[in-house]
Amino acid sequence: MIKIIYKKRLFLIFVLILVLISLFVYGESYTYKNTINRYQNNSNNTTDYDWKNLVQQQIDDMRTRLDSPYIQENSINSVKIKIEQLEYYIDQDINPITPSAARFTVQFMEQGVYMFLPLLIILLAADMVSGEFSNKTVKLLLSRAVPRWKILLSKFLVLLIMTTIVILFTAVISIIVSKIVFKIWGFNEPVVTGFKVINGMLDSSSVIQVTQWQYIILIYSLGWYVAVIIGSISFMISVLVRSTATSIGIMMAAIICGEFMQFFLADWNLVKYFFVTNLNLTKYLTGSYQPIEGMSLVFSIMILFIWAIISLIISFGVFTKQDVLV
């Protein structure tokens, strides 16, 4: 049964893969050029590429910013923490700058997890149920000798499988493409994670060093988690509105609104219970991130989990009860 619905979605996946590849290629070459440019501008030194100098330069830049009178109150802390992090890198002799396949792969997911990835998943999930309604094929499925919850469950499983494929594909493509361009694997480089902010000070006592390999797996698991949550929510919308365009629209609007709310309504405590505000899971790992007072990695994971469970309950409730009038 699962195979069934799978088959027709393959077309969609192909399209998505194409989109992904083209975006990747463009994105990575752009970052690559940027890194080189920045380095050359800053150091006036094109031959000797010493990352420690570069990092030091960044630290100096940030210090100047801190001294500037125009700096915003609330960004002082995060800049301070950034500086301390960079200093830690220099102390530990860990290179945070030179691009490598592994680093790019991580960065891509870090950047994509709260915007790009959700949008892809929405495209996939929004069509799952409403698509059947808009081309009226839902009646073929529902007039079979299969209980409705089974049909919806198989749809949801397909969504999970496709989400996994998308995540894996993202990883594989970014590894391959960035390897071609940067020519460095860098999978065994150490990564530090587990910085903690205690009273505005960076606490490096709980820092753990992992290799890039492990870090990639960690980041992509978080990405997968986010994708599944977004998938479940769009799945519900898809069941509720019965039109693909509308359900994509609603989800996109929710995501974009959420981003805005995060910036403008950060004082409003309710905002932190909105799912979009909690999407940026990977950023917690760098330690300096706390979009709204009281949010943490565990908090966000719990909130997202609750959202997904509620969405699924609503989806199944509505889908098994409703009259199909197409």
Binding site: K7, K136, T137, K139, L140, S143, P147, V326
Partner: peptide, 21 residues
């Protein structure tokens, strides 16, 4: 439901099938 439905085949309001298959 399931037992009853195994004995029914139907076309409701025109044959809407998956066009791209």
């Amino acid at each position: 439901y399931v037992k009853a439905m195994t004995n029914v085949g139907c076309i409701i309001e025109g044959p809407d099938l998956y066009n791209y298959l």
